[in-house]
Write a protein that binds this DNA or RNA. Structure first.
Lengths: 336, 336
DNA sequence: CCCTTTCAACTAAACGTTTAGCTAAACGTT
DNA sequence: AACGTTTAGCTAAACGTTTAGTTGAAAGGG
């Protein structure tokens, strides 16, 4: 390995001078500067980031923690994070939690050990997230995207899930549906979508039948079972609103399996707009949750926080606007 | 930040003793060991990996370079890599190249700067890859997965793409198709699939018509245009074999758009078996290219290479077996 | 011509570890 | 009792940087 020492020797200058040239942060005469630059080239010297990190307490590493990587929603978000990280000369340490708070906590710990400069957390939304507490107490710059603990609001980039619920539900109501079921989970994003759903129903005077709130926690198998149960009881709503596209997929699959036509017999609207909903068996009507944009903005605010350093700064939470994406899984309610 | 010094002071021992306790690599009397452990707990000390890396020249960081992250093939591979990395206490630095050799080279350089211990490269297959050369010359342990430069064979985990071509084509021939088109690109994986395709045709005495090799380089738009051209010339094969699922998707979409039925009028088989092919508009029949397994095995061999350290060792290339996945995009050729 | 100021370039300490090599206590042998 | 051997635990150097503080030559002022 060629070190700064070798360069210094070759250029017949001191280590400090080489450092000054590399970092361009002190005046160095043209003559020496040139000698140093030549030496660097000839030796193919590249500064050792590990040593530099040790001295500077800055690794230029950003930790990114996502729930899953096989659900296309997250890769899209990751892409957003990566694009801005790359532009700012950060590298990403990426890992997944499978939505397990303990794993998440351990990962945050591990990242701290690696000396990451900041972290983009796209995962848990527990009432009081241990991970977030840890980050706070260790004073590690962080921004939460997609989800956040209920109490937490600073430095986060979220989708306005309440509005997602409203938009989807209102769309269904506009299509004259009057018996709509909600398929969701426990997480904040889902709870908010549920609130938006209920509110839109109330606002338009649409009744919410008894067993129309179905909690499946993003588990496709559960969705399948729950909808199947409805089918077997012969108690079907005319439309479903799912709090995620993957749950909408699962819903459509049971319906199709059991001989219903989507959207002719039953409409289904999702939310998220993952890349694949466009090409799903039935192209999915859904509400776009801006995964890429959350990643992009999330990383951007992280980096601006990182740059202000001591400013101890607060950036107001972003709440992104969802938007309706009409495709083919919904249609006007049939007569009778 | 609490350092090893603080622990040493608190436990009234030397730094060296604390280090010995942490690393458990020297005998320390039970008494001192306990004192040290208590101090560590009370101070919540965690060793600084950056410092450790500097001394040890080992970061416990693995670089992973993939082409894209929004194509579900790669996340699946990543998942394989991550699962074994996690188990072995490595963290992953992940980035994407968009299939640009220059970007890839720069990324490899960057990762070297970060001191990664090894890299899993899942990307380019140039005749002579600068990136691979760089890794070789810097003596960084690396394994190539999914693709490799033509000349390169060591330490790689590849899918047997020739066989992919054979399997897909033979399946189509078994369905009595006698005019089959191939949709592919320039990359080795595609070239091998093409060879397998041609060989299977020859072996079964099926004629290959003139304009039946369509090069689209994984670009959905190009696929669309090329197939469209065929349609407009009214010169249609009875089946398509695409060298990737995404190209198969694009093919199916034009066909559907132009009023063909898949598979009733025309059969399409893909290759890769990305997660979504199962739920595509027409559930895609395809040949599984074992993305997860390549990632898993790739990382596993990387880590075993890392552990042997000085052994300068060579691990024979893995060539994974592809397997046919029958779904709904192919059927027996219609009479006439 | 001497004294002060300026500043390019240098020396050395520091970042938080690991580890080679040393010290001295404890023990066994004769 | 004297000596050698063993070894628990220590000291200090090293990893490759950055940077505070120092040096000394040149420039400027009186």
């Amino acid at each position: 390995m060629v070190t700064i020492k070798d360069v210094a020797k070759k250029a017949s200058v001191s280590i400090a001078t080489v450092s000054a040239v590399i970092n361009n942060n002190k005046f160095v005469s043209d003559e020496l500067k040139e000698r140093v630059e030549i030496a660097i080239k000839e030796l193919k010297y590249r500064p050792n980031k590990v040593a530099r990190s040790l001295k500077n307490k800055k690794t230029n590493l950003i930790g990114v923690i996502v729930t899953e990587i096989t659900n296309p929603f997250y890769p899209l978000m990751l892409k957003g994070v990566e694009d801005v990280a790359k532009k700012n000369n950060y590298q990403l340490i990426v890992c997944t939690t499978d939505d397990d708070p303990q794993k998440e906590y351990d990962l945050v710990q591990s990242m701290l050990d690696y000396g990451i400069d900041g972290v983009v957390l796209a995962t848990i939304d527990d009432k009081e997230s241990k991970s977030v507490q840890l980050l706070e107490q260790e004073e590690i710059v962080h921004v939460l995207i997609n989800r956040s603990p209920e109490v937490y609001s600073d430095n986060s980039v979220l989708i306005d899930s309440y509005k997602v619920g409203e938009i989807a539900t209102t769309y269904l109501i506009d299509l004259e549906h009057d018996d709509i079921a909600f398929i969701g989970g426990d997480r904040l994003n889902s709870r908010e979508r549920e609130k938006g759903f209920k509110n839109a129903l109330a606002k338009h005077g649409v009744e919410l039948k008894d067993n129309r709130i179905i909690k499946c926690n993003y588990d496709a198998e559960k969705v399948y079972q729950n909808v199947l149960q409805l089918i077997e009881q012969d108690d079907m709503p005319t439309a479903f609103f799912a709090a995620s596209d993957t749950m909408a997929f699962a819903t459509i699959k049971v319906l199709l399996d059991k001989g219903f036509r989507v959207p002719q017999d039953i409409s289904v609207i999702g939310s998220d707009n993952i890349s694949f909903s466009e090409d799903f068996l039935i192209p999915l009507t859904t509400v776009d949750a801006q995964a890429y944009e959350m990643g992009r903005l999330g990383c951007e605010t992280l980096i601006s926080l990182l740059n202000e350093s001591e400013n101890n700064s607060y950036i107001k939470p972003y709440l992104l606007e969802p938007s309706l994406v009409v495709r083919k899984s919904c249609q006007k309610k049939m007569e009778g």
